[in-house]
Design a protein around this nucleic acid. Sequence first.
DNA 1: CTGAAAGCGCTTACAG
DNA 2: CTGAAAGCGCTTACAG
Lengths: 334, 334
Amino acid sequence: MITIKQIAELAGTSRGTVDRVLNRRGNVSPDIEKLVLKIAKEHNYRSNPFAKALAKRGAKYTIGIIINSIGNMFFDDVIVGINETVEKYKEYGLEVLIREIKGYDENEQLEALVELSAHNLSALVITPIDHPLIEKKLAALSPLPIVALNSDIHFDRKLAFIGCDYYNSGGLSGDIAELMLPNGGDISIITGSFHMLGHNERIRGFKDALKNKGNIRIVSTDANDDDNEISYSATAAVLERYNPDLLYFCAAGTEGGVRAVKDSSSSARVIVVDDIKPMRDYLADGSINAIITQQPYCQGELTIETLYQYFVYGYSPDQVNCYTENQVRLRHSK
Amino acid sequence: MITIKQIAELAGTSRGTVDRVLNRRGNVSPDIEKLVLKIAKEHNYRSNPFAKALAKRGAKYTIGIIINSIGNMFFDDVIVGINETVEKYKEYGLEVLIREIKGYDENEQLEALVELSAHNLSALVITPIDHPLIEKKLAALSPLPIVALNSDIHFDRKLAFIGCDYYNSGGLSGDIAELMLPNGGDISIITGSFHMLGHNERIRGFKDALKNKGNIRIVSTDANDDDNEISYSATAAVLERYNPDLLYFCAAGTEGGVRAVKDSSSSARVIVVDDIKPMRDYLADGSINAIITQQPYCQGELTIETLYQYFVYGYSPDQVNCYTENQVRLRHSK
DNA sequence: CTGAAAGCGCTTACAG
DNA sequence: CTGAAAGCGCTTACAG
């Protein structure tokens, strides 16, 4: 494996200049640049990450994070993943400024965005609300590396989307529903919001997976605004009206929803999304039957890991969309 | 974070001596050793892995691997995990000598062990047969770091066991069986060998998970010697005799077993262990309903990663038993 | 038993 | 636009 020193010798220049070329720091004559690039390519140069990390000690990188986590336990583990990974790299100058907000009001998010971007950030992480106002602001911030976390939004030069494949999550939920209803049955869906892309994708995946599957029918789809109390009453109403064999909660508000099932006389079986503490307990005591998880801890970890790679090694992710695996959790899952 | 240089200054000695103490290279006077250790502890010294890795360039580590992979597709992904991870670290001197063997004959494995240990190895990885002959040989090799991969065996100073928690694997299979039999039913188990600890642990976990679960009964348990043809006939016989509602294959030989189900008129549903290619296809076409996987790729990767950490950073695993997670795979699993 | 020196591969001021 | 030098934190011969 060739090194910077060897490239410098071959090109008849200094290591500093090779470094400038290889890391696009500018201030290099076009001729030398071309030559260095040619030699690097011919010898299949790849920088040594350990040497890079070592030399970069003392640098500072502040990551601003806006996360819609208040009142949504799903994000607890995301935040743990973020903090533990920052801790791991803190000697290399990573630090984090977290703004937690509640709900999906675009103006509130915009405000947090404006406030945070005044802080001389090295990167921004956001669970974006899919709204033109936000899109515009993010595009304006653009030279700054930006990661969309858990929910996605379109804008140019996004560094990465880190979250799950929502359509696949729905499909996997459909698989398990099929297993659970060997003789067919009626299914009611409780979603978060019909305005959330991810939720709708889950429903689409779920329905596609169950298409032409025996006597399985989707009998209703209702929204709970990701709110436990609304979820309780919506679920109670659905149970009353449709008496389904199975309930699929494809967004938050699961705690309220499951409470409604327990308070009813329904024997409906239950699939929920997201592995939060109360759901683990409900799984253990049989109140629910399966959890589909998108690995929140990994999403937090991967976010920081991605930015560390970007800062210290100059690596961008291979794919803009970085999906954490959707998984089925049953009682014995670790 | 304190460095070796700073410790040396505080202790009034040289970096070389501090290095000797911290890495137990010997040849240090007891007084200095004590002092250095004290300072390191007080300042919570932790070595910098990047600096270590950088300084270690040029070292050579040969890992000998004995793996019972011939005729067992499960190990294909384990080996891919091994090779890709070795590739990743090959600049740091890792290389691998693999002996693939077939079956569970202890003398054959012993022979491979003797032959391989003549190669001036830095570590040994083995899928051990749980037999006194092997145990004795491994104990004799003991200063050499040894990793038990996928199957375990007792001996002193084992560096790690890397594999799954078999009891938990059985429990998770029980969970999914329970989901699939809402009205109860009869289950037949096809195992590999009653002499394999892991297989028996799976059966125990499976039965424990299904204890007191409605009308679910285990009606038979038969062995197939991990062989597809024996599996075919054993399964055919079981279907004929018990007409079970569900089959649980808790070891290899799944391909032959599922073929027997397809060739029969049985409508038994099927849970298998291990995510090998033919099972993926059977899952897609509905011939089987669920796969319980132990993440073979990760087992290979973790094995090499563990040895890399040991060689380059001097880290031993926190726990001797390193479990890869057992997971449910359905049609939409990635 | 101990220490001074060189080196791993890269980056960062700094001087020109 | 360019290069020489020092430094990141550790290890490795080597001389004593």
